[in-house]
Every structure is written in structure tokens, then in C-alpha cells.
Design a protein around this nucleic acid. Structure first.
Lengths: 242, 242
DNA sequence: CACTTCATATAGCGTTGCTATAGGTGCTAG
DNA sequence: CTAGCACCTATAGCAACGCTATATGAAGTG
């Protein structure tokens, strides 16, 4: 698993860094690890990339290409807002598939220094939202809408990454996504789009009862009865109308 | 500006770390800086906090106290959803006022390791949302709503932190906030808004659910389950609890 | 061949987080 | 009073870190 091949040292460094980053379960990656895996010594790294951060920026740039490629693959749909939905999902998928790379791109942020990648991602989304605006489906200027949606998108992705894979609840993403898209949509788009949250009053009432029961300690049911009762309540509460 | 006073070394270390962290424009803070400012040598730090991360956790814990205190100061309003709105704004304000501390708390995340502070913040918000659910103002289970809102809240705050102060657009926060709260609100809360009396009790909720269940034909429970469920519901509805 | 330019290596600087070991301090027991 | 015993802190230093001053090799050009 070494990159001592015939490739130029610059490429070997990039690949070594990317691989170590991907497998570095949260821990830091040292320049010595990278140069050793690349079969190169330290000055070579600094000759080509200036810094450790320069190298990581290059890795991020490569990762961003992949990200953008994924975003652009979804575009044929005639409905811009549907495309935004797919951009959101693609963003989340990218983050979950390469969490370490994602954290370098959108996570480790420093105040007052705006990573270029964020601005690019924002531009990408704004571009798409522009089409929606042209079609009269937007209720908010595209730039503001893009910033808002992207902020929520990043927040959700970061939260999902911190969860262990088996218990990841993608419902969180879907719900937040629809909420944001709905919020920037014009009335026209709202009525025609995927039917607004048609939650039945049953669900609302069940949720309310569930919360009320847990707040007050009713003694009308035995503990075993209550347990089963709450389980059913939960089933009703979470019956999503998709 | 040194903490060589009569305070115990543990306290001096905490204050020194907090101060250096607050003024470290994104750069790393070394243990040597901290111990020097605290007027203490290295082993003292490791005796009290185990390692550097332990110290930072302690600083975060202190910062979290402040955060929670801010969140709890807004609570008297009888309208839970309005309180959620204030929690959101307080969260953003906290992040902007102490960006470095905020980044340590919610930023530098490692995959598959959930910082305790996030879980706590989530619990705080869920608690408040529970009240909204009791009042029948929620369209989504409180836990899911809390996770979703908090995720967006963190995303927005991180995005605002990366912007230079003079050009920060708080409209981004307000817009995203309202979108998220609107999305989890029940129709009742949406339309009536301030009207809804927060007097809903277990009994009222049970009655509402009973009526709703009989009006619609939910298929989440089998017929036998439903029968027993309704019987229990009746028992709760007719109870004379406080 | 002389000369420049680019790319890589040797060796080491200063700093980092952390610790093995020892010494000082204040307590209670005899 | 003193012996012992925790508790706390300091001296000194290790291994690993990011990075670089300097030197060596390879390749192209006059």
C-alpha cells in the first residue's frame, strides 16, 4: 500500500495525503506519515505545496472536483426546486461517504477566514436557485436563499457525521431540507410542489399526548400497559406521510 | 495580565486557558502558553486535567454553564414556540460573542464521537419543544424537531462566524430560524399563533387523539391493538387527574 | 563544456504534548 | 514534637511535530 510507483512525487504526495486523511479516524495526520507513504522526504512536500495546509488545500480541491461533479450530474430535471433537493441530498451523501475530507472542507473552520470551498459551494447552489427565481418559484433573493440552505445543509451533515453509522437518521436531513426549500419557495411553487406536510390531526394529537404523558405521571395505566401504550403512540407519531 | 494571584492553580489554569483561547485568532493554543500565563509548570496541568483536551473540556463546561444560563433566562413566556425562537437567537449570539469557544464546543468535531455538549444542547431544546408539543403546537416529535432545529442553528452560527463582523447578515439567521420553527409547527400554531392557550393537559390531549383516531382510519395499529389502545385512551380521558 | 534551473535529499532547528522522577507542603497519629 | 502519609508542584527531558538552511543530483540550453 505504497505509492512508490512511477508517478511524479507531487501526485504521490496528494494520494498519500488523501488516503491517510480518509483513514485517520479523527486523529491528526503528520507530514512525516505522508512523506513516508509517498516515498519522499520532507523538503519535497514543501517545495510543491509550501505548507502542510497547502497540501491539504490541494487535497480539498481534488475532493471538491468530485463534489461538484456529483452536484452537476443532477441537473436535467425541469424543476429547479427539485434539483435543489437533490443537491442537498448529494451534499449529505458526500459528507457521509468521506467524513474526514468533509470535515476538512466544511468543518475545521477558523473565524474571519472564509474557506474558498464554502464560497464555491454557495455559488453552485445560488446558480441553481437563480433558475428557480427566473421561473418565479422563489420568494427570497437567490443569494440569501443559497446561504440559508447551505448553512442548514452543512449543519445537518455535521450532525449526522457525529452519529455512529448504524443509528443515523436520515429523516433529519429530509425534514430539514424540505423545511428550508419550502421556506424560500413562492406561493406558486408551494401549491404545485409536493403536497405540503399533510400531517393528519391524528399525528398532531398523538404527539401532543405523548409529550403530555411523559410530563405528568398518570397512574391510570399500569407500567406494563403504559409501556405498550407509549410504543403504539410512538408508532402513530412517526407514521410519516412521506 | 497574569493569574499569579492567590487563586488555586487549577482555577488559574482554567482562566488562563479561557483567556488565551478567546484571544487566539483561530491559531492553536499551546500548553506552554497556558502554564506560563497561569504561573505554573507543565505537570500541574496534567495532574489536574489529565491532558490538554481535558483542560479544554473543562473550559467548555464552564462556557456551557454560561450558555445554559442564557438559554434559561428566557423561559417565562407562555408561548413555547416564541421561547424556541429566543433560544435560537441566544445560541447565535453566544457563538458570535465567543467564536473561539463556540468552535471548540460545536466546531472541531470528530466523526463518530458525539461531544457531550451537543447532546446537552439538544436536550435543552427538546425540553422546550416538549412544552410546545403538550400545547398541541408541534407537528413533529420533539426529539426530531430539536435535532433538526439545532442542526440548522449550528450551521447558521458557523457560517456567520466565518464572516467578518462588519458584513454579517443576521437576516440569514432570522430567516432560517423562522423556516425551521414553521416547519415543525402544527397547523394550529401556524394559524392562530398567540391565541393557543397553553393549558393543554393529558386529558385534553387524549380526548383530541381519541376524536382524531375515530375520524380517520389509521393503519398503524392492528384492529385488536387499536381496540385496546382506545380502551386505555378512554381510561385516561375520563380520569380526574390534577 | 559551462551554466542555469528545477527537484530531491541530509541533517537539524525550535516547538509541541506529555511524563518519569523527585521534592516540598500540610495533614493526622502516636 | 515528630513520623508518616497523602497531596500537590517543579526539574528535566523524551519523542514527535512542522518546517528549513544547505547541499546534491538531474535535465535542459548557450
Amino acid at each position: 500500500m505504497s505509492f512508490d510507483g512511477q508517478l511524479p512525487p507531487k501526485t504521490r504526495l496528494l494520494r498519500a495525503a488523501a488516503e491517510l486523511l480518509a483513514n485517520s479516524a479523527g486523529g491528526a495526520v503528520s507530514t512525516r506519515q505522508i512523506t513516508q507513504l509517498a516515498g519522499v522526504t520532507a523538503p519535497t512536500l514543501y517545495h510543491h505545496f509550501g505548507d502542510k495546509e497547502g497540501l491539504f488545500d490541494a487535497v480539498v480541491a481534488a475532493g471538491f472536483e468530485e463534489y461538484v461533479a456529483g452536484e452537476r450530474d443532477f441537473a436535467p430535471s425541469g424543476q429547479p426546486l427539485e434539483d435543489i433537493r437533490r443537491m442537498w441530498d448529494n451534499h449529505v451523501q458526500f459528507g457521509l461517504k468521506q467524513p474526514e475530507l468533509y470535515l476538512v472542507m466544511f468543518g475545521n473552520i477558523r473565524p474571519e477566514s472564509r474557506p474558498a470551498v464554502v464560497a464555491d459551494a454557495e455559488g453552485l447552489m445560488e446558480e441553481m436557485l437563480n433558475k428557480a427565481a427566473v421561473a418565479g418559484q422563489l420568494d427570497v433573493p437567490p443569494r440569501e436563499a443559497a446561504r440559508s440552505i447551505l448553512a442548514a445543509n452543512v449543519g445537518v451533515t455535521l450532525m449526522l457525521i457525529t452519529e455512529k453509522a448504524p443509528e443515523r437518521n436520515l429523516e433529519l436531513s429530509a425534514m430539514t431540507r424540505d423545511a428550508m426549500i419550502f421556506a424560500v419557495s413562492s406561493d406558486q411553487a408551494k401549491s404545485s410542489g409536493p403536497e405540503a406536510s399533510g400531517k393528519s390531526s391524528v399525528v398532531v394529537a398523538a404527539i401532543a399526548l405523548n409529550a403530555a404523558l411523559q410530563a405528568s405521571h398518570s397512574d391510570q395505566l399500569s407500567s406494563s400497559e403504559l409501556k405498550l401504550f407509549l410504543e403504539w403512540l410512538h408508532r402513530i407519531s412517526t407514521s410519516s406521510t412521506s
